[in-house]
């Protein structure tokens, strides 16, 4: 149970609520019973009733995973017994049904997996539409990892250009810097678009500028700093990238931010890590920065202390 606030109630109100709840339970159990009875009597020979009765159960309780399995078995049998035209219609109906479920229960593993399963059975899945559905859901909860995962699934199975997805992450990041899921998505797409080392380096330099916008606007937000770490990590991996010069520039910019935000731990930490990466900075300077971090963020004192061994 997540985020269910405990509310104080009167005895009278509790009684009334219980009466309503009992009614709800009775209805639910009767829906489950109809499905179970039918399942027993049909003896493995599925028909439209199998689909409609199980749909009713899932509409009330999408976590009832055995019922999703049951529907997969139904479709597997239909594949042997029905013409493709009819099958495709059934798949489309299923996509519609899942779409309703997914909007009511956007965090159910079972629903998302069922959608992936059905989408690959379609002769041609409307991936544009799928992308739109995700965007709609991400507008309600921009960190829903099922949804981001499904976007990557779409990329994998469709011809939608990667550039479009990159654009989407730009929009989401500009709406809200504090959305690491978008930054993550960006980090997973960029290497796929920029396969040429030189172009990739140029793009990463642009990305340093882009993320600077975020770190300077909200220096306390960890999302953009983690993306900054990804940029440093990535540019280092590219042979002959002259990354030291790029990091030196980053260091300069980060130090500027420290001047503006002397009590914010993030630019100090990143400045320190950049100095360790570049090398040849005076020990005392690095030690001072570690001590400052310990002062500003004492909860993580032992992590910072471990950095003494790295300088």
């Amino acid at each position: 149970m997540h985020g269910v606030l405990k509310v104080r109630t009167t005895e009278e109100k509790a009684k009334a609520a219980r009466i309503l709840e009992l009614k709800k339970i009775e209805e639910y159990n009767s829906i489950v019973k109809k499905y179970t009875d039918n399942r027993e009597s049909e003896q493995g020979k599925y028909n439209e009733t199998s689909l409609s009765l199980s749909q009713k159960v899932l509409e009330e309780n999408p976590e009832f995973y055995s019922v999703w399995n049951y529907r997969k078995s139904i479709f597997n049998q239909f594949k042997e017994t029905k013409e493709n035209e009819e099958l495709q219609k059934l798949y489309l109906n299923e996509m519609k049904f899942i779409e309703e479920c997914i909007q009511r229960f956007p965090k159910s593993y079972w629903i998302w997996y069922h959608r992936k399963w059905i989408s690959l059975k379609l002769d041609s899945c409307d991936w544009e539409r799928e992308t739109k559905l995700c965007s709609k859901l991400l507008n309600l909860d921009l960190r829903n990892f099922h949804c981001w995962s499904y976007r990557r699934f779409i990329i994998q199975h469709s011809n939608i250009p990667l550039e479009k997805e990159l654009e989407y992450t730009t929009t989401k990041i500009e709406q809200n810097f504090s959305n690491y899921s978008s930054w993550h998505q960006r980090s997973s797409i960029l290497p796929k678009i920029y396969t040429d080392a030189e172009e990739f380096i140029a793009k990463l330099q642009e990305e340093f500028e882009f993320v600077r916008n975020a770190t300077f606007t909200e220096p306390k937000d960890s999302s953009s700093w983690i993306y900054h770490k990804w940029l440093v990590h990535t540019i280092k991996q590219i042979p002959n990238s002259n990354y030291i010069d790029i990091l030196k520039n980053e260091l300069e910019q980060t130090n500027e931010l420290i001047e503006l935000e002397p009590d914010c731990k993030w630019p100090i930490l990143i400045s320190l890590l950049l100095k360790i990466e570049i090398g040849a900075y005076p020990q005392d300077e690095l030690k001072d920065q570690i001590n400052l971090l310990i002062k500003l963020d004492n909860d993580h004192i032992n992590y910072y202390k471990s950095l003494f061994n790295k300088i």
């Binding site: 995962s149 899921s181 997973s188 770490k229 990804w230």
Partner: peptide
């Protein structure tokens, strides 16, 4: 495994 040292549910997924 991701660059941050964390892991996701399948290759390419965000660390959680």
């Amino acid at each position: 495994k991701n660059f941050d040292g964390g892991y996701g549910s399948i290759p390419g997924a965000e660390s959680h």
